[in-house]
């Protein structure tokens, strides 16, 4: 464990808690893409299959449980909670995210480190996580006005991915055997997707204006 990875995990945890806090306190999911949340729940479900079989550390198991419970409860809130579901804008959240699932699965079948069920599901979760933010970014472009919590949520997610890239660079230089091209490339693609959001986020923060993404 290195500081970049710990900071990345904490930032990722913060992003999920910010979202849960927003939904739970103001009982609203305005501006949040249910599709992205469903993709994240699928990412965790397929990545943490080894939750009960491979024990790595208490930290690892605990964090996996937190991410699983929080991602599925966010989906539950938006779909079933009688008040929150009313604020879900399904007419705007129209990204056909199922079209992302199949290509990621096929790619995982072709490009993976080992052709085993667990490894293919893990690789699938990596590719899916790389594109899971797309419905949310599309929704932000559409709704234009981004409320603070949603902006912070996407910002924290981007920060978590950026910290993970620093973690991989650190591990590459400190652990001779640590080479995971698949992880690195899909992680890089994912981080690049946030790049333009970051640009507009900092612009609005610097000029102290409301965050707006160009149509």
């Amino acid at each position: 464990m290195n500081i970049f990875r710990l900071a990345g995990d904490m930032t990722h945890l913060a992003s999920v808690l910010v979202l849960l806090l927003k939904i739970h306190t103001i009982k609203s999911c305005a501006g949040i893409s249910l599709k992205t949340q469903e993709l994240y729940a699928l990412v965790f479900a397929t990545r943490y299959l080894d939750l009960f079989t491979d024990y790595i550390s208490l930290y690892n198991t605990l964090m996996k449980l937190i991410f699983l419970v929080s991602s599925f409860s966010i989906v539950w809130y938006i779909r079933h909670h009688k008040i929150v579901r009313r604020s879900y804008d399904k007419d705007q959240d129209t990204f056909r995210h199922y079209f992302l699932v199949l290509p990621c699965f096929l790619l995982a079948l072709v490009i993976n480190e080992k052709f085993t069920v667990k490894e293919i599901m893990w690789t699938f979760s990596l590719y899916l996580e790389a594109v899971a933010i797309l419905p949310q970014l599309v929704l932000l472009q559409r709704t234009r006005n981004i409320d603070n919590l949603t902006g912070q949520y996407v910002f924290l997610l981007g920060a978590y991915r950026s910290l993970y890239i620093l973690n991989w660079i650190y591990r590459y230089f400190t652990e001779p055997h640590y080479v995971h091209w698949i992880t690195w490339i899909s992680g890089l693609v994912q981080t690049l997707l946030y790049a333009d959001f970051f640009y507009y986020y900092f612009q609005s923060w610097k000029n102290n204006v409301k965050l707006e993404l160009p149509a």
Partner: peptide
């Protein structure tokens, strides 16, 4: 090396 199959990152 068996390090590759156990993914220790979240």
């Amino acid at each position: 090396n068996d390090e590759s199959d156990d993914h220790d990152e979240l």
